[in-house]
Nucleic acid binder design. Structure first.
Length: 367
DNA sequence: GCCCCTTTGAAGAAC
DNA sequence: GTTCTTCAAAGGGGC
C-alpha cells in the first residue's frame, strides 16, 4: 500500500519500512524489531526537523486530494487500497481552543469538543467522510522553543486555502483518540495560533492522583501504606499505545452495536474479532500502520516509559479514572500551549517542550 | 465498587 | 528462541 511508505516517501525514513509489519510481514518477518525502529527514529529525531527540505517540493510530495475518494469507501467504511491518498487536511494536536481562530464562521461548535475527543474541521466537499487520524510521529523533534516565537495572533496570515472548512450540516462526530489529535484544514501559509486558555489533557496519560498540597480540603484519599506506594500513585499512568486491533475495535464498535443491537462488550468483541479476520490485508494494514505510528509517537512522548510500568496497575488505573472524573482540572504532561505552522513545518509549543513536525508527515485517513 | 468476560497485538518476563 | 503474562478498549453482568 502506498500509504505504508514502501517507497519511503510518504512516511519518511526508510527505517520505518523495516519496522512496519502488516499481517503478511508478520508472517514473513516475525522478528522485525520495533525497538530497533524506535531507536532509529529516536536517533534521527535530532536531524528530523532540520532535514525536511529536499529536492522534491512539498507540494509534490504532499498527498493530493483524490477525486474518487468517496468511491473508495466500502461497506465497512474503510479505504482501499490507498487510504492515504488525497488528504486536504493535515493533522495537528488537539489544541483545545486553538482551532477557534480558524473557525470564523463558527463551524466547530465548542460543545462538539471534549477533552478526549477529536473535533474535526472538514472540507465541505468531503462531508461524508469521517477522518481517521494518522500522523507521522517520527517527525517529532523535541527542542527548545524558538526565540522568535510569539503567541500573538496578530501575525496570523491566511491564504484562501487556510480558511476553515465548515463542519457539514449533519455535524461531525468527534472522534476520540488516545493521543488527542485534531484535524485542521491544510493550507500552508504561515499562521499563528494563540495558546488555548485551557490545557489539553493527553488521553494517553491517566493521572495517578490529583497532586494536591498537603491538607487540601477536598483530599479524601486514604493514606497509602508506604511512601513507595504514595510515590507510585503520584506517577501519571501512561497507557499503552493501542495496537491495530484495538484501533479497529474502537472504530467499529459503534457499528456493531448499531447493527447487532448488542451491548455486551464480550459479545461485541467476539464479533469484531471475526470481522477483523475477514478483513483483507490491505484493510488490516491501515490499522497496523496507525498502530505503528501510535507506538512511535508514544515512544517519543514517553521515551522512558515501558509496558512493564503498567504491570499490576489495572486496579489503580480504574480507581484513578473515577478520581479524575470527579476532580476536574488536572495537570498533564502533554499540554499544548500553541502552535505555528508554515509551508514545511508545524511547531507545537508544549509546557515543557517544543515539538517540531514536518507537515509532510501530517496525514490522516478518511472513513 | 471491583472484577470478569472477550477479542488481538505488543511488550516484557521467564524458561 | 519459544512460551507465558499483562495490558490496552468497551460496557454489561455478577458479586
Amino acid at each position: 500500500m502506498p500509504q505504508l511508505g514502501r517507497d519511503g516517501d510518504d512516511l519518511g525514513a526508510n527505517d520505518e519500512l523495516i519496522a512496519f509489519k502488516d499481517e503478511g510481514e508478520q508472517e514473513e518477518k516475525p522478528n522485525v524489531s520495533s525497538e530497533r525502529d524506535l531507536d532509529d527514529v529516536k536517533s534521527s529525531l535530532v536531524n528530523e526537523s532540520e532535514t525536511t527540505n529536499s529536492s522534491d517540493s512539498e507540494a509534490d510530495r504532499r498527498p493530493k486530494p483524490h477525486p474518487d475518494v468517496e468511491s473508495r469507501q466500502h461497506d465497512t467504511g474503510l479505504f482501499q487500497p490507498s487510504p492515504y491518498v488525497g488528504y486536504p487536511f493535515f493533522m495537528i494536536s488537539d489544541l483545545g481552543n486553538l482551532c477557534s481562530p480558524y473557525l470564523t464562521n463558527g463551524a466547530l461548535a465548542p460543545t462538539g469538543r471534549t477533552s478526549n475527543s477529536v473535533p474535526v474541521v472538514q472540507h465541505p466537499h468531503m462531508t461524508h467522510l469521517r477522518p481517521l487520524l494518522s500522523y507521522s510521529p517520527e517527525a517529532f523533534s523535541p527542542q527548545r522553543a524558538s526565540p522568535g516565537f510569539s503567541p500573538e495572533p496578530a501575525g496570523m496570515s491566511r491564504s484562501p486555502h487556510t480558511a476553515c472548512y465548515p463542519v457539514s450540516p449533519g455535524g461531525m462526530t468527534p472522534i476520540p483518540h488516545p493521543l488527542g489529535w485534531l484535524l485542521v484544514s491544510s493550507g500552508f501559509s504561515p499562521r499563528l495560533v494563540p495558546p488555548p486558555q485551557t490545557s489539553v489533557p493527553h488521553p494517553a496519560i491517566v493521572p495517578a492522583s490529583v497532586k494536591q498540597e498537603p491538607g487540601a480540603s477536598h483530599s479524601q484519599k486514604p493514606p497509602s501504606t508506604s511512601e513507595h506506594d504514595q510515590e507510585e500513585e503520584r506517577k501519571p499512568h501512561i497507557k499503552k499505545p493501542l495496537n491495530a486491533f484495538m484501533l479497529y475495535m474502537r472504530e467499529e464498535r459503534p457499528k456493531v452495536v448499531a447493527q447487532c443491537k448488542v451491548k455486551e462488550s464480550a459479545t461485541i468483541n467476539q464479533i469484531l474479532g471475526q470481522r477483523w479476520h475477514s478483513l483483507s490485508k490491505e484493510e488490516q494494514a491501515k490499522y497496523y500502520d496507525l498502530a505503528r505510528k501510535e507506538r512511535l509517537l508514544h515512544s517519543k512522548l514517553y521515551p522512558n516509559w515501558s509496558a512493564r510500568d503498567n504491570y499490576g496497575k489495572k486496579k489503580k488505573r480504574k480507581r484513578v479514572k473515577s478520581e479524575t472524573q470527579l476532580e476536574g482540572e488536572m495537570t498533564y504532561q502533554m499540554s499544548v500551549l500553541g502552535f505555528v505552522s508554515c509551508e514545511t513545518h508545524a511547531v507545537f509549543y508544549c509546557r515543557d517542550r517544543e515539538i517540531n513536525l514536518d507537515v509532510k508527515h501530517l496525514t490522516f485517513l478518511f472513513l
